[in-house]
Design a binder for these strands. Structure first.
Lengths: 200, 200
DNA sequence: CGCCCACCGTACGTCGGCGTATGGCGTCGG
DNA sequence: CCGACGCCATACGCCGACGTACGGTGGGCG
């Protein structure tokens, strides 16, 4: 609940407030269909009258919400850039952080299922491409040639996406704690061409 | 309106016809929300009057459609069982077949995003568990101990799910043809603890 | 032949959500 | 002190979809 934007800090809502509430609704409702004006208005303690002052229509709200989501994800990646200088360490930190973060945010899973949407599709593709490029850069720093780096970044990202899906649909099959650490070790090792514990 | 010949004699529809049409609508519309009685009725050349004879309500249709989907996926796995006796060959065939099959069927991606749905959730979890068990059995046949087999089956299935997502959202980043074959080789090799081409 | 009933069409009421029109209130500039 | 404007509430019409009531038809059986 932040009302910092705007000179008049009365009980008035801003477009950013609506976008944030739309993202929250999407998180809980699971999908773009959850972005509905009237329920969000009720949730904000307002009415449609307020909404249609800030936005032209529902599509504009979706656009704003997804734009907000895109910048959040982009900033997240940039924050990861500050982790460590060693690319090997960075990969490990990245995996741990990212697999934990996606567990309790169904937004991404919801967007994946809406790849055909005229607004969500391009946003999704930009975010995905950015992540793949970042991963390929990481593997490149490890000395892998371009093609090999791309291949492994793809493999790594598929593993990430799949794990995100499972974390959302069947969290009970995913390892936790110490076992999860060993699992991540194995994944990273297989991505780097070596195995951690052949004997188990 | 014109009398659209159904799949049954004398133009009459069956519950199975409705379930199949609901699955088709979900395939094209992407999501459970696409299962709407009146559009499907129009598509079948019928009206709601016909539907409510065969089903109690919309939820019953969703249940029937998902039950049909579940048996289809189960039969699919059983068909894969007949592939080859060598588990190594079976894994390869399975990967190729499965990555190709999921490319043009958004149903699974749509269901993944609906894991919280009271009907879709359990169906999804049953199918996933069945696949994981099957994969773990395959790795077990390769001589891996139980825990190791489970870990790798999880890794393999995450790779499958992620690739399915990418095939739906960003098919252009996925390799094709010869490059795809090399990619699958690398994935399988990393799952088996050896790498195919360290030098690229 | 005639009746029954499975099967379906039609019409209706309802509900939720979109978009619009318009009035009202508070705050600021003059 | 007043008008103007930014911001919002209220009320309305519309549409698509759900579910119901009921009428109708046609084919098989008595």
């Amino acid at each position: 609940m932040s009302r910092q934007r705007g000179t008049r800090a009365r009980g008035h809502l801003t477009a950013a407030d609506w976008a944030e509430a739309a993202l929250a609704a999407m998180r809980e409702g699971g999908g773009l269909a959850a972005i509905a004006i009237e329920p969000i208005a009720a949730r904000l303690g307002a009415t449609k009258g307020s909404f249609y002052w800030h936005f032209a229509n529902r599509d504009a709200l979706i656009e704003a919400a997804l734009a907000r989501w895109e910048t959040l994800r982009t900033e997240e990646v940039l924050a990861q850039l500050q982790l460590a200088t060693d690319p090997m360490t960075r990969i490990r930190e990245l995996f741990q952080q990212v697999t934990a973060a996606v567990a309790e945010d169904p937004t991404e899973i919801a967007l994946l299922a809406q790849a055909g949407h005229p607004v969500a599709g391009p946003v999704l593709r930009r975010v995905t491409q950015r992540r793949l490029d970042y991963l390929a850069g990481l593997f490149g720093e490890l000395g892998l040639p371009e093609a090999e780096a791309r291949q492994r970044s793809l493999q790594a990202y598929c593993g990430y996406l799949g794990r995100a899906q499972l974390a959302h649909a069947m969290p009970e099959v995913l390892p936790t704690g110490e076992e999860n650490a060993r699992y991540l070790d194995a994944v990273i090792a297989s991505l780097l061409g070596r195995r951690s514990r052949p004997g188990g």
